[in-house]
Design a protein around this nucleic acid. Sequence first.
DNA 1: ATCACCATGATGCATGAA
DNA 2: TTCATGCATCATGGTGAT
Length: 622
Amino acid sequence: MDSNLFNRLLSAAACRVVYPESFGQMDDNSSSVGSDNIDWNTDDELEITNEQEIANNISSSSSVSMSTNGTVLSEFGESSSSSNYLSKLHRFIKMGFPQAMVEKVIAEIGDHDIDAILDTLLSYTYLDETPHQEQELNDSFVKSESIFESDFSDLDDSCSDEDTNESFEKDDSLVCLIDMGYSHGEASAAITRCGKDVPLSELVDFISAAHISKQADAEFDALTYEEEVLKQPKDKKRKSQKGNFLMKKKTIEKKPKRKRKNEDEDDDVLHLPNPMIGFGVPHEPFHNIHRTLPDAAIGPPYFYYENVALTPKGVWNTIKRFLYEIEPEFVDSKFFCAAARKRGYIHNLPLTNRFPIQPLPPRTIFEALPGTKKWWPSWDKREQLNCILTCIGSAQLTDRIRLALENSNSKGECECEPSEQVKKFVINQCKKWNMVWTGKTKVAPLEPDEIELIMGYPIYHTRGANRAERYKGLGNAFQVDTVAYHLSVLKNLYPHGTNVLSLFSGIGGAEVALHRLGIPMKNVVSVEKSVVCQNILQDWWEQTNQTGNLIHISDVEDVTVEKLGEWIGRFGGFDLVIGGSPCNNLAGGNRRTRDGLEGEHSSLFYDYFRILDGVKSIMGTN
DNA sequence: ATCACCATGATGCATGAA
DNA sequence: TTCATGCATCATGGTGAT
C-alpha cells in the first residue's frame, strides 16, 4: 500500500469515535468482563469461568466501563438470557460488525434467530453505502447507546469536518470502511485486492464475503462438532469423536490450502527466519543494519512492540499492517541466554552500533545451572532450555520419571543406561516441561530465582509474590538481554535520560533493560493491570535508587488522549513507547482460547496501537 | 479467600522419506 | 511434490488443602 494512503488511514483512524472491528472487539472485552477482575497481562486473576458469571459480574459492577452493558443487560432481563445475549453479541462483533450496530439489531428483532440477525446486519451494511448515511447511522448508535464517551471525541469533530472536505476518493473509501466498523487491515486489504477506484459496495462485498466464509466455516465446525460429539457419552468416547472430527476437518481443508499456497499465500503469511536472528545477534556473522522505514513509522517517538513469534496464521501480518508496515524482527533469545524464546519485535529503532549488556549471561544450561552438571546423563543432549513458560512441571511428573528410571535401571541390574523407550519418555517430558537434573534419577522444574537469572533479571526480582505469580510474571516477561541489545542504540541518543511510556509492563523488563544499559529514566509511565507486578516494579525502582519519576496506571483503557497530552506536555514528549501486548490468545500452550488477535486478551494489541498512534499524533501536532 | 497443584491438545513449521 | 512424522509452544480451568 502506498505510504501516503496508509498515513492518512492512520490519522483518520485516530480521529474516529467509532473504532473498527478490532476496537469493537475491544469494547466488548472491556464491557464483558469487569476491568477490576481481569489482569490483562498475567491473566491469573481470571476468576470468571463462564458467561453466566460474566453477566452476573457485569450487573453487580459499578465500574464506569460497565455502564454501556449495564443498560443492555437490563433490557434483556434475567442472567440466563444475558448469557445467551452476550454470547451472540460477542459472536457478531467477532464477525466484524460494530458493537453498537449489533446491540441495536438484537434489541430490534431479538436474539433468537441468528440468520435474521445476520441478514439485518448485512442489510444495514449494504444499505448505508454513502459515507454520509453511514456516519449518521453510527452517530445515532453512539448517541443512543452513549458508548464511546471519551478518548477521541474532541478530535472527532474537527476531523469529520476535514473528512467532508476531503477530495481523495480512495481515502474516502478507507474512512467509510472504517466508519462502517471494519478494521484498518480489512479495509486496506480490500482496497489492495479490489483496487482503489472500485465502488464502496464492492469493497464491502469483498469484506463481507470474507466474514461470511469465516463464519460459515466456524459454524460448520461448531455444528458438526455438536452433532457428532454431544450425542456421545462423556470421557473417552467424546475425545475420540472429537479427534475423528478434527481429522475429517483437516482432510477437508487440505486441498484448498494447497491451492492457496501456489497463489497468494504469501500475502497472508510472514515467514519466520531460520536461524531466527532478526537483523543480527552478538556472536553471529550475519548482520543487516540497512533498512528503510516507511515515513509514517519514523519517530519520534521510538517505539518497540513485542509478541510471540509462533502465532496463528495471519496475526503478524495484521500487527505489521497496524504498526506502519514495519517488518517484524524475529529473534530467538537462545542466542542471548540459556533458554529459547522465539519472539517477534516491531520497532523503529536504528540498527547500527547495537551492543549487548555486560556481563554476558550464561548461554548454556551448565553455565546457568552448574549444579545440574553432576547429575546430567550423557544421553540427555540438551545444552539449552526451551521457552520459559508461565507454569511448571508437576511433582508427580518428577515421581513418574524417577520410577521409570529406577525400574529401568533395576532391570539391567547395573549402572548402565535405561532402555531406549524410557530415555525417550524422559527426554520428551524434560523438553516439554523444561526439567533439569537434580539427582541421579530425579528431574525437577526450574526454581523462580533460576528463571530470573536466565531471563536477565536481578536475582529475587520477583521475591515477595507467591510462587505461581512469580512463574507467571517471569513467563510473561521480556528476556532482558535480547531487548536490551535492541534498545542499546538509544544510549548515545539520550545521554541525559529518557521519558518512557511502558505498556503492559509486567515485571518491568523494559525498565530493567534500560537500567542495565545505563540509560537514565527521567519519567516512566507504566501501565500494568496486575497489582503484584506493579509492586515488583515499584520495589525494583526503589531498590535500584532510581532518581526518575515512576507513574503507575492500572488499565490501558485509562490511557486517554487527554492523559497522553498531559504527560507529553509535562515531560516534553515520550522518547520511547515500549511494550508487549498479551499473548494469551496467540500462544501455542493455550488449549482453550487460542483465538488469535481478536481474542479476549490479545486484542489489547489494538490498545497498544491506539496509544502509540495517539502519542505520535500529539507529538506530531506539537 | 488464597494458594499449590495437576490434567488438559492443537497449531504451524521443519524435516525427511516416498 | 506429497505425505507422514517430529517438534516446540509468554496457558486455562478445575480441584482440594489451608
